[in-house]
Every structure is written in structure tokens, then in C-alpha cells.
Design a protein around this nucleic acid. Structure first.
Lengths: 344, 344
DNA sequence: AAAAAGAATGATAGCGCTATCATGACAGCG
DNA sequence: CGCTGTCATGATAGCGCTATCATTCTTTTT
């Protein structure tokens, strides 16, 4: 069998992109040295580093991070999975994460489950496939498959929003306690006919946790704890429409404890439009401490949750873990604060 | 020189992760066939496909997308670069993008420039390194290096928010026209002492474009077009604090045209707290059509911009392009709508 | 001055997957 | 019957980078 040396090799894939090898050649070093010059600058001499950087500049080299990740089975990607982008609360957490992670050179792969745990599982699968170096997810609840997948994963997992025993790291606040806190406030103020109003509680289960705390306090005082559940997700609109519904079902209502500030502010503005006096005709309380609630008159009584701070703290803990440091505490309570307005 | 066959091979990297080869072996086919069964189901027989899928299930295989991307030099990643996450406008665009892209199996790599074009360039570099299949960026302005980098890039580039001649695809609205529209409305209403108020206009240059439109209309009527620039980024707080500043600089002000609804709503709520009547003492107009503005009393006059729609449309166009379809129009005007409230 | 340790660089062999070409089996057809 | 075409599958060779080990040369130690 005679070879045909003039035959063009069969496996030729083109790519006009500049590669590290080209940079290396241009700088007069081997590819691996060029790699070191870019990723472990201390491992090469000053001259070499300068030459390589000059070549990078000259050729307009853009590192292929995909190839790098495959070779090193590491990546500077961090998966962030949230249940919603409409709810500004998650966006603020993302913002906290993002500003801290991006400063350390990490990129965020963003996923939205739309409050669907099966969707979450799918996203987790996909993201693991990108060999992310960590995963941030909102909440402690996952479906079975997701749990199993994550349990065998060797990278840090950060569960945010609610405090509790998670799979790995956890930064959040105690929602049951927050519910108790607000309910106590309302009872102390002398209200007795208090309705809790939330939206899609099966999905937004943290709102249900707050209701649990709320109910416990009311029952301890021998008071009934009625709840009204809205169909639509929390929003100003839903809040403003909820007023009628509450009064229809509970005509004697003195105070409404809303699951979040969007609903509460919507109701407050609607009450004003209807000529109701807040808090004399109806007291209104929220949760989150959104700027909106602080700017309406009367100012909304709410519970401040440190959302951006939660994101920042989560990011910092992740970075500590990723840089090999021992992580002492696995759980971080960011707390909350009762913000007294004039709406109660 | 004698070889030592008992010597352990030198290049051994471990990885307990299940690979496609293992799946293939378990299914009794070659790796490439297993690959096809997962990615080109029509290219294999039904039996083979079933066997492979069963093996995937059995072994808990999670595809290594990094390896796949390197081999195919394609990825299901789409880079999204926005100037801010505080401004809910961008978040809504992201939401529109995200829900449409995720449905097609694309993931979003999120970057935040914080209104810094150099930062944008860095992000673009990084994201190109991930061989994203497309890039979405807010705005038509980029720095020189970024332009050069993108001009040579062979994947779709989608510039959103503002309408204009972009690098590739474009979905947005005409901000100059929007500024004209609101200014005309104010002039028609009989206002003559009109102040435009914005924040960090050098960075939020779309707000300046609206001012340009605003100024043109006022000047056409022989009216002066004073502008007040705030230091802090647009927010309710900045808006509420801006009132005093405006009156200090322009005591006779009849109407304020705010660069966005956050500022406008903040000012409106502040005016009410100060006992000013809106619109009789002071008329207030905004831009964006945020829900907030529609729920305050008086309802805010503003310009509705279809933000989620913009994201969805951008995503759809990208998907069309990515699936190889010819893209007819490169520019899409999503328009805007004057929303008359009682605040003017 | 010889031995040991360190610093800088390079050669090699993959990371896990898919593009490309090659093969064998079988159908249709003049 | 041989020819072409289609279908299902496989063998091979990378994608662009870095981990690992090997080498050379310089510095430090005894």
C-alpha cells in the first residue's frame, strides 16, 4: 500500500481564530509557556511575560475559555438559578452576587425556574454540564432528582433566601420568624381582625412560612388567622385588586398582612383611591422593604430584608470556598428588621 | 532502551464523571452513535435511540457541554450585556429574552457593565471566549476596541433598547422621538416653564437623546429648555429629592419632564408629602410606563416602552438567525405610546 | 567543588466530545 | 446482475487548551 503524501489531510477544521499556539510562536516560546504567562504570571520570567502579552496584543488573541475549561475541568462560571425575574427581590440578590463575583472574574449563568422544581432540575443538569465552579439557587426545596444530582456534585452549592439546613452553604433569613414579628406588631397595635394575603403560596412557599409564623402568634392570642390567596403573582395590580376580595370575604377586617410590599403598596394606593384612611379604616403591612413602600404616604410598615447584602455575602462565602479556604460557618443568618411606617 | 510496560501511564487524569463513551459501551454502540442518538435523534434507528437513552438514565449521564462546544465550536450560550441591574427596565428586557431563549434551550451568560464601556469590552472579550452563539447588548455605543472585536465576530449581534444603525441586528425605539412626543404633549397642555430632569446623563445617553427631542420641540416654540442633572442614578429617592433642587434653580417651573418613571414617581410622591397639588402646582411626566406610575394618584403621564416585548422580539429574531433562516429586516422599531395620566 | 534545590521552559498526552470520511447492508432499477 | 443510492453505524482525528513529567540552567548549601 503506497501512501499519497500529496493528499490533503482528511481532518481539517478551519478556524480563523487566533490560538494560543500562534501567540506562542509569535512570542518565540512554547504554547505551554504562553499559557503560563497568561494564567500563572508568577511562573514565568518578566521578559517572557512581556513578550507573550505583546504578542497577545499584536494578534488580538482572545482566549478560548471552552478549551481551557475542558483541559483543566475548571471554569469561571457560576450558575445562578432563581424562581422569578419579575419579583425584584431576586433581581436584587442577583445584583449583589453579580457585583461581587464579577469583581473576582466569575461569570454568571442565569436560569429562571418560574417556580417550577422540575424546571430547576433541568437547569441544574444543563449547568453542571458547563462544569460551573459553583451553583447558587434560591431556596432549600428541590425535587428528588435534583437533590440526588447535587448531592454527588463536588463543587460548592449555595442556597440563598431562606435560612435552614441546606445541602452545603446557606445564606438567608428566618421567614417564620419574620411572619411572627409582623403579626406580633399588629397584635400589639390592638388589631384583632387580621387577614394574611399572599399569591400562589404553593410556589412561593417562603410566603407560606411567613404565614405560619403569623398564624402561630395570632393563635397564641386566641385570634383566628384567616388567609386570602390570590391567583396572580405578587404585583401592584394584584394588590390593588385584592382589597375588594378581602372585604368581601372578611368584612370586618382591620388589618391586612401582605406577603410582600408589591401587594401591600398596591393595596395602599388602591385604598387611597377609594377614599379609605390608612391605617384608621384599614391597616396595611408588607414584607421586603422595597423602596416603593418607603415613599408612599403613609409610609408602609414592612420588614426589611437585606437582599443585595444577601447576594454579596453569598458571593463572598463562595469565593472563600473556591479559593480553597476553610469555610467555618455553613449557615449565615442575614436577619431582618421591622420597619415601622404609618400604615399600621 | 527497554520499555517498562508495567509502568503506569504518565498522563492519567481522573474524573469519576460518567462520559458518553461509558454510555455508549453500556448501550452496545460506538461513542459517535451515542452522540448522534442524543443530538441528532433522526440519524439513528429507533432501537438504538432507545438503548442509548436507557443507558443515559441508568448511568445518570450528564453531557459535558464544554467538551461538546469545543468539538463543535458551537454552544447554546447567549451573552447578554446590560449597563445596570438596578434599573428595572433592563431586567424586564432580560426577562423577555430569557423566557424566549430558554424555551429554545439557550442559556444566558449575564454581564453588567455598570454603564462603563471599557467594562463592556472586557465582558465581550470574555464572552467571546465562551464561543457564545450570539451576543445581546444594550445600546449602540461601544468603545473602539469593542467595535473592532465585534466587527470580526461571525455570530449574530443584537443591539437592543435604542433604534438605529447597529452592527448587525437591532430592536429598539426612537428615544429622540419619545422625547419630542412628551415635550409636545407638555407644550400642548399650555406649560411653558418646563424643566427636564435626568441622572448621570453622560452614561445614560438614551436619556440625553430624549432630552434632545424635548429641546427641539421647546425651541421650535421659542421656549427655553433648561435641564437639571442629578448625581445619583435614577431612583424614587433621587426623584423625591430633586424637587427642591429644581425649584431652587428654576423657581417658576410649571412642569417637569423626568428622564424616567422612578424619578417622576419619586417626585410625585414627594410633592404630595409637601402638600403640592399635581398637576396644578407642578406637572410631572415620566418615561417607561412602570407599573408604579400607573398606581399612584394622580396617575403619572408617561411614555410606555414595550420592554419585555423588546426582549422577546430580540430573542425571536436571534433564534431565527441562529436556525439559519434569512433575516429580512435588520432593524425593528418596537415603538412607544404616550400614556396620559392626570399628573400633567 | 560537588551536591542539592530551585527557577524557567518544554515535550507529551490527554480533557470529552463531534466533524469528517469510510464502510457495510440493503433497496431499487435498467 | 452489476450499478447507484440511501441508511445506519463506525474509525479516526482533532477542537484549543492545560496537567504532568522531563529537562536545562542557575543558585544555594555544605
Amino acid at each position: 500500500m503506497s501512501k499519497d503524501p500529496s493528499h490533503t489531510p482528511k481532518h481539517r477544521r478551519h478556524s480563523d481564530q487566533v490560538t494560543l499556539s500562534q501567540v506562542a510562536k509569535s512570542a518565540g516560546v512554547s504554547p505551554i509557556t504562553a499559557s503560563r504567562a497568561l494564567n500563572n504570571p508568577t511562573k514565568v520570567s518578566d521578559t517572557t511575560r512581556r513578550n507573550v502579552l505583546a504578542a497577545v496584543e499584536r494578534l488580538g488573541y482572545v482566549p478560548n475559555l471552552v478549551a481551557g475549561s475542558l483541559a483543566s475541568s475548571r471554569s469561571k462560571l457560576i450558575a445562578v438559578i432563581v424562581p422569578s425575574l419579575i419579583n425584584s427581590v431576586f433581581v436584587e440578590v442577583i445584583k449583589g452576587l453579580q457585583e461581587t463575583l464579577e469583581a473576582e472574574g466569575y461569570q454568571i449563568l442565569l436560569g429562571n425556574t418560574d417556580y417550577d422544581l422540575d424546571r430547576e432540575y433541568q437547569l441544574v443538569r444543563t449547568f453542571l454540564g458547563w462544569s460551573c465552579s459553583a451553583l447558587v439557587t434560591a431556596g432549600l426545596r428541590h425535587n428528588k432528582a435534583c437533590h440526588k444530582l447535587l448531592a454527588n456534585w463536588e463543587h460548592p452549592i449555595m442556597e440563598v433566601m431562606e435560612l435552614g439546613k441546606g445541602m452545603d452553604l446557606n445564606v438567608g433569613l428566618d421567614h417564620v420568624a419574620a411572619g411572627r414579628c409582623m403579626a406580633s406588631h399588629l397584635v400589639d397595635k390592638g388589631y384583632r381582625d387580621i387577614v394574611y394575603v399572599g399569591a400562589r403560596l404553593a410556589q412561593d412557599y417562603r410566603a407560606s412560612m411567613r404565614y405560619e409564623g403569623h398564624k402561630a402568634v395570632l393563635q397564641a392570642h386566641g385570634i383566628d388567622a384567616p388567609i386570602v390567596e390570590l391567583d396572580t403573582l405578587g404585583s401592584l395590580k394584584a394588590g390593588s385588586e385584592s382589597l375588594d376580595q378581602v372585604f368581601a370575604q372578611h368584612p370586618k377586617t382591620q388589618a391586612i398582612h401582605f406577603a410582600n410590599d408589591d401587594l401591600a403598596a398596591g393595596a395602599l394606593l388602591a385604598a387611597q383611591r377609594q377614599g379609605l384612611n390608612v391605617p384608621n379604616d384599614i391597616a396595611i403591612a408588607g414584607f421586603n422593604g422595597l423602596p416603593l413602600g418607603q415613599h408612599v404616604t403613609p409610609q408602609l410598615t414592612t420588614i426589611l430584608s437585606p437582599r443585595e447584602e444577601m447576594g454579596r455575602l453569598a458571593a463572598k462565602e463562595l469565593i472563600r470556598r473556591l479559593s480553597g479556604k476553610n469555610v467555618v460557618r455553613r449557615q449565615h443568618d442575614v436577619g431582618f428588621k421591622l420597619q415601622l411606617g404609618e400604615s399600621t
